[in-house]
Design a protein around this nucleic acid. Sequence first.
DNA 1: GCAAAAGTGTTATCCCTACACCCATGA
DNA 2: TCATGGGTGTAGGGATAACACTTTTGC
Lengths: 221, 221
Amino acid sequence: MYQYQHPHPAVTTDIVLFTIGQQQLKCLLIRRKHEPYKDSWALPGGFVGMDEDLEASALRELREETGITGVNLEQLHSFGRPGRDPRERVITIAYYALVPDTGLPIRAASDAGEVAWFGLDDSPPLAFDHEAIVAMARQRLVSRLHCSTIALQFMPEKFTLGELQGVYEIIQGGAVDRRNFRKRVLARHCLKDSGETRRNGKHRPARLYTCVSMDTVEVNK
Amino acid sequence: MYQYQHPHPAVTTDIVLFTIGQQQLKCLLIRRKHEPYKDSWALPGGFVGMDEDLEASALRELREETGITGVNLEQLHSFGRPGRDPRERVITIAYYALVPDTGLPIRAASDAGEVAWFGLDDSPPLAFDHEAIVAMARQRLVSRLHCSTIALQFMPEKFTLGELQGVYEIIQGGAVDRRNFRKRVLARHCLKDSGETRRNGKHRPARLYTCVSMDTVEVNK
DNA sequence: GCAAAAGTGTTATCCCTACACCCATGA
DNA sequence: TCATGGGTGTAGGGATAACACTTTTGC
């Protein structure tokens, strides 16, 4: 038992993890094993440890519930409407992150009975206010797309410009002029020609590029 | 006494309230009446009520400690490093807001022994990690200045374009071309010519403008 | 040779910047 | 009449957007 002179809310972190697959923007969800919202889908997350920094808590929950490590979390927003959790007052600090699509080792563990990627426009009803959290994260993602190099976090180590363009087109939902896109993205000097090429089908092979640096460089002039 | 099965952190809100005065960007601080950091300057803020939304808590603290009401709060970031408060684990959700300079009715109340505006480059050492919070709020303010109409929140109901330009120059710390500034700001169609003018000195009177809408319109294309 | 994506350059447009002069007022 | 800030327009440059053809490969 823990006692306090004044009432204290519980504090959690939740993580909106995005990826791109099957021509869709997807988000990682877990199926809850316990009440409340037992068997509902929800964002990975959980209670903050008393000696744990907020971001560390989010990383730990993500690792424990999905086995995913090494992502670059950004704080999104804190949600604390009274009543958002039926058990007690819970304030959550939401983070988001972007990971490449390739071969994600997802395992269900701890509180999560099941883990899966869902297309954002094709996802089940979520527990708590998690739909609002996902919506805000998506909005943030779209607005950062143009003034930062955030989209590179979706890419594997080596990728073609066509693949990168595809990511932009999926997120913003619309076609992009290939020549202008290449000029713009190469002008940022965030990509390095790896020298290699990749044949992807019955057509000319594409050059493979690498990120010069993993930092999300803001370009908001 | 309040008892929980698991330990709970305390949760507070803190508010970075900016204004412009004496050709400076200023921030509202209170002098603490109690330990810890007794007699130090700190941001207004305090513990979140158990049935109170986060923004409502920030508004209440601001009202109780400074008498200021009716500001437009934006959530800044949550800070939760273990040890940032010597008493116990405290996670704070920081907000920021901008208010006009004119005739602010500031009164000290409740936990605040004293309330005052401080120029940002001329402020005393702050309690807790409040200097980091102010620094982040300032950064946010600068970066929003160009892609939003946030600066209008510094203005009184009626103001001249020269006054608005002065606000921009103070925040970003540099001169702005008057003609280009006027074209840009008028092109946003957020200002309405009130028809009135104001004589401010021994020179031609200036037109007074009003905000068309109080919303902070983002213009990030 | 044909389908399919990769790769490349030029032109027109728009937006932003730089820049100089007259206006209305108070002293 | 002079000092002070208010008010206005234009020309040049840089960035962005529109646009079509050749290349390399698999079938």
